[in-house]
Design a protein around this nucleic acid. Structure first.
Lengths: 227, 227
DNA sequence: TTTTTAATTGAACGATCGACTAAATTTACC
DNA sequence: GGTAAATTTAGTCGATCGTTCAATTAAAAA
């Protein structure tokens, strides 16, 4: 170790204070709507206002760029979910109240980011849902799992600890149903309005959260009766 | 009208008794896994064992072929769902029993076709779920809506008639949650096994149906309490 | 059999794809 | 101010895309 070990990594940002971010923003937006194969690097470069070669310079191949989009906000999102779970665990009350707290703690960070985190977060959440809906394509869903599997397992564990009387499989099924609801609902925007004849706004997710907490909370009570 | 008006359309099948069907089968299989943009006409032709030009000869453009895949089984599937709903409407019993009958009547035709309808139906159901998960792309989801919106509305109407005490919006939300669960679960295969550590088989959908009926049936009872 | 016509083949077309390179430009550091 | 590294530009590469067309094959119609 002859060199100074304290040498800060101090990256040298000559130009491009936000070029890389603009490319990620454009990719995030386009991927979340049309999917990986439905978007070309030229589409992304055009929307970002840069040359196509810049995408390769900053992020390498198209697959690498896709991975960079997923990675950018993953840690922050996982941390937010973990915080929400920690708070939910401290909620006192009867079983139903504590169950609702955990359920709410899972959906709230996601909806909050989608609604109040800005355009980038809204696109990111939609991209997460899109990825979660293509489980056949291991290359795309693998990095997603790598980031979120642990924190999701923590939610399941919290519900299992809350329901020692329930079969472990029932709890897992119930949470999986919950997750499936969220995944599909976040992937869409517009279906709600059409199906209900315009009474609901799909962007008004706050009202949906409360109903979903009601629905899922009650749904858990229906599991494991036949067993 | 000089010609004989009774002239049967009697199409002339020289060769190709099943070539068109083989193309549809290949397209159905590939689209349902990799999505529209992830599949090339050459992929489809290769899997069907024909030349690329045949896809254009039989079905026109790539979009037309995609539409033909959706159209092929749509009527049969809609009819099966309508039949199941008719039977469910005749179930007697208390409110919870009749509600469970309607819920079961919605998921059963889908799962039955996926599990016991053969490979083609399994792929078709997965393709339906894939399409339902890209609501942003109007061109793809539009034909899907055209086929299924009416019968889906009939299920919602049946639940509303069963629950006159519930707010109309609550019933719609509840059914939408139910639909979201199904859509996501059908799109995937493999996630279940991983998440539960191998205890469940995602192909064992029969057990899932019972738990889903329990979950959704109980979930409806949780809606509309705060109102 | 001869004629007719649908079905199929093989081979292209222009366009666009992801990836890459070399040169030009800009910035940070001495 | 000079220098080197980082960034951006312009352009090209082979491959593959959806689509089309002329020629060929095979079955039905006459």
């Amino acid at each position: 170790m002859a060199e100074a070990a304290e040498a800060a990594p101090k990256i040298d940002r000559r130009r491009a204070p936000d070029t890389a971010a603009r490319i990620l923003d454009a990719a995030e937006s386009l991927f979340s709507i049309r999917g990986y194969h439905g978007v070309s690097l030229r589409d992304i470069a055009t929307q970002a206002g840069v040359q196509v070669a810049l995408t390769h310079y900053h992020f390498g191949s198209k697959e690498d760029l896709f991975g960079a989009v997923i990675d950018r906000r993953a840690d922050a999102h996982v941390a937010g979910m973990a915080d929400a779970l920690t708070q939910a665990r401290q909620v006192a009350g009867d079983q139903a109240t504590r169950r609702r707290a955990i359920i709410r703690a899972f959906i709230t960070p996601i909806v909050d980011r989608s609604m109040r985190g800005g355009t980038g977060w809204k696109n990111y959440i939609r991209l997460m849902a899109l990825v979660a809906n293509m489980p056949q394509q291991e290359a795309f869903i693998s990095p997603f799992r790598q980031h979120f599997d642990d924190v999701i397992a923590a939610y399941v564990q919290a519900l299992r600890a809350l329901h020692p009387e329930m079969d472990e499989g029932d709890v897992q099924w119930g949470f999986f149903f919950f997750q499936a609801m969220i995944t599909h609902i976040l992937a869409e925007s517009g279906m709600l309005d059409r199906q209900s004849g315009g009474r609901f706004s799909s962007s008004d997710l706050d009202a949906m959260v409360e109903r979903m907490v009601d629905f899922v909370g009650a749904g858990f009570t229906g599991l494991g009766r036949a067993a």
